[in-house]
Amino acid sequence: MTADTSSLPEVTIGDDEPSSSRLLLLISTVAALGLLMLHNVLYPGQDLPVFGELVPLFGGLAHSGIWFFLLGTMIGFGLMIATLIGEVVED
């Protein structure tokens, strides 16, 4: 028996969300921020363009490897708050 595909539109979106998609999103974000650190390698001593000009705090973010680790901690604390709110709302 073959599926009847004539009633399907050309573009569809499913209701289910695979959990790996969120993981991929997270990895992409971390990778993008990590690649942003390449700026420091290519242009040592210079502030991050745009960000550094708008907010002085972002000027030297790429100057030390500690920010890689602090980024992970910040994501962890963010997850904590998000989980807490999510669990309370769901409960």
Binding site: P56, L57, F58, G59, G60, L61, H63, S64, G65, I66
Partner: peptide, 9 residues
Amino acid sequence: TALHTLSTI
């Protein structure tokens, strides 16, 4: 000097 950038805030 790793966190010197935070002196801006």
